[in-house]
Write a protein that binds this DNA or RNA. Structure first.
Lengths: 222, 222
DNA sequence: GTCAGTGTGTCACAATTGTTACACTTTTTA
DNA sequence: TAAAAAGTGTAACAATTGTGACACACTGAC
């Protein structure tokens, strides 16, 4: 039943037996949902810790005019809105709907808190999840704080750079990179080709060779 | 000794007696620091939970060229790097230095985890702290995802708007707003005056009157 | 009341990026 | 292998924002 949880971030380090023991020790619910069902609306209070067991969910951020801004898909065995169960703004940041039928395991907040207290491994795992989100968002904001495309390229390359050598593997195409940078694709291509002309980098298919790392670093320096 | 902790987010809800009891029950250290001392370098592992008891600290984010990007000051009784004790990237995101002399209370990570397990209120408080950071950063990213100044103004005003009436109190001057938006002050002023010409808003000293909320909402809709 | 300091409105021009379009190459598919 | 699709380079032009400068209104100190 809970076999899938063995590979979940929350129950990492526990074997199936322990997971069953732990879960059956606290109140929990299993909710079935069907395809296209809307599970939660943005703004509703998050009162339960929820773990997706089966199926696919989609979170859509909506603006004031009801348009969808950002989309994030969720697959088992991830937690739903893990960082919105506690904190001063504990309500869903997105509309949550089902892309397929599936199942969710949930604990009421009180029971979940008890659960965390009861096993240091679970506590540690959950803290890792939430702290990891802070760290991810923190990196993202650092990235977004660079204004020009050149700066973003420079920061990205220097971050990807591993100690030996001056080559960065690019695992994405320019279209994906551009959307990750939040800029238009041709604008990215233009900046790249400018930096190539200035002999700072050499951009090949899947590799970028850094030919002048000092210049590259100086792009970020202010 | 630990009186200041009564008003700290972590020990909120506990009285001085309980705080003393709880702290003396686990291993802890008190570190004195002097003015201008550098306490931690960006990139070092965060191995201890640290709470500032006295004095003032400054966190400075540094880039690849060694320039300071962002500055954040810390005052008692806040936690230091609260969301960087756990998680996959548990190292300091900033250089931490002292603006004055002072004291820090710290617990080794293991002891701190035990501390959290031992009292549901502490656990709840810490989860509130870290989750609150996710929520704060999440809002910030939503905000940064709006590209034009018009969009930022619209989002800001609609967010500040409280149900009755169409007036938003602006507690800051345009210079502060502009830096919060990450744009140049004259650019902000220009966008404001454009929106005034289009009769969407009327910007007065400390108040903004929304004269056409539908148009304002449609600015965000994409 | 005068004065300095702060906050705001506005302008011309520069810099940067977005948009749209098209050509060309590389990869994938049939 | 041929055709289709995806990825990339590039161009002209539009849109948006930044920069630096200046004028003027408002506020509080003296």
């Amino acid at each position: 039943m809970f076999g899938v949880l063995k590979s979940s971030p929350l129950f990492s380090g526990l074997d199936v037996l322990e997971i069953n023991l732990v879960i059956n020790n606290v109140l929990h619910q299993i909710r079935n949902f069907s395809s296209n069902e809307v599970l939660e609306f943005s703004g509703e209070t998050v009162g339960k810790a929820m773990i997706l067991l089966e199926g696919k969910l989609r979170g859509e951020m909506v603006d004031f005019a009801g348009n969808s801004l950002k989309i994030e898909d969720l697959e088992p065995p991830q937690m739903v809105a893990a960082a919105f169960l506690y904190g001063p703004q504990n309500f869903f940041p997105v509309n949550l709907s089902a892309l397929s039928e599936g199942k969710i395991l949930s604990f009421h907040k009180k029971d979940f808190t008890r659960l965390l207290s009861s096993d240091p491994r679970l506590l540690n795992n959950y803290l890792n999840i939430v702290s990891g989100k802070v760290q991810f968002l923190s990196n993202k904001i650092t990235f977004l704080s660079f204004k020009t495309i050149r700066e973003k390229i420079a920061y990205y390359l220097l971050n990807q750079l591993r100690s030996p050598g001056l080559v960065v593997e690019i695992g994405q195409n320019q279209t994906a990179l551009a959307s990750m940078f939040g800029v238009a694709r041709p604008s990215l291509a233009r900046s790249i080709s400018e930096m190539e002309n200035e002999k700072i980098i050499r951009w090949e298919r899947n590799e970028v060779h850094i030919t002048n790392i000092l210049l590259l670093k100086s792009i970020i320096g202010r």
